[in-house]
Simulated assay, not measured.
Amino acid sequence: MPASERVPEVGLNPDGSPGPEVLTTGELTVRGQVREASNAVLYCETVHEGRTVACVYKPVAGERPLWDFPDGTLAQRELAAYLVSEATGWGLVPPTVLRDGPYGQGMVQLWIESAGDQDGALLALTEDAEPAPGWKAVAEAQVEEDRTALLVHADDIRLRRIAVLDAVINNADRKGGHLLPAADGRLYGIDHGVTFHTDDKLRTLLWGWAGEPLLAEAVTVLEKLAAELDGSLGERLGELLTTAETAALRARVRRLLETGAHPVPGGQWPSIPWPPV
């Protein structure tokens, strides 16, 4: 049987990478903690059929309450973001599950080892008045008391897809450090705990396409997403989000399709997260 036709091992994706099923099996073993995180983030390992898989475990018990996200848990929102990402077909969020662990129920996500800037930087500061070819302007940044620079991001299809996903899930915290380029060339977005709010809270470093027409592929994806939100995806998200939040999600998808353009900053909420990285 040709390699392309081989049935993948149970729990693995067709390309041999770990799927979400791998994360739900085996005992989680805590190996360390991400100290700079505002909530409890534990680096763990789980063993699946003799294969050790690295993952991130964020127990609900370690979440700090947020006054503007009072319903549900951050872990539920992380899983909801993964489900929406999978529905797009773009695979922008690492495999994510909810399960019990050493400190109770929490979000468990495949650990992505960042390849850094091996294929070029995604974000940069420039003292030029306009972005260079291949770059998109975000905002003017104060770098010293009397000096400013232009914050830019790459005009990269991977970033553009994440910008669409963020608009759909209403991501309030798309920082540079939440973008992980993998060794295989894929780009992942992580840390989706503050998403799906009913109010417009989109805060991101990916404003470079604001107001520009959506690409044809994005329109196709949004049309597919709209249909799935009225079916099984909507039912699954209804177990993780409030009725008002799922209604707002459907409304955002409809609005993107009606306008046919990337959203622009609303002005009633800071448009860039702090700190930006």
Rank of each mutant, 00 (worst) to 15 (best):
G267R: 14
L83T: 14
T126P: 07
Y43R: 13
L256W: 06
G26A: 04
I112P: 03
I157K: 03
K136D: 00
A61N: 03
A81M: 00
V30Q: 10
P94D: 14
P14K: 06
L233F: 00
R6E: 14
L256Y: 08
A244H: 05
G11C: 14
S17M: 00
G208T: 10
L205E: 08
Q33V: 15
G231P: 00
H197V: 03
G177E: 00
P102W: 08
G238M: 11
D146Y: 04
V164I: 02
P270W: 02
V253M: 09
G91D: 13
Q109W: 03
N39Y: 11
G26L: 05
P95R: 13
D200H: 11
L125C: 07
A137F: 08
L159E: 08
P131V: 07
L66G: 02
V93C: 02
P2W: 06
L23N: 01
H178D: 09
V30P: 12
V47C: 09
P2S: 08
G193K: 02
A129Y: 00
R255Y: 03
T25L: 01
E217H: 15
E212W: 06
D119M: 00
L12C: 02
I157D: 15
L214K: 13
L187S: 02
L240T: 08
P276F: 08
K224G: 14
V143R: 04
L122P: 09
V221H: 01
A124T: 10
G91M: 02
E235F: 04
V277K: 00
R99K: 01
E217S: 15
V164L: 03
G185F: 02
D155I: 07
D117I: 00
G104Y: 01
L256K: 08
G26C: 06
N171L: 13
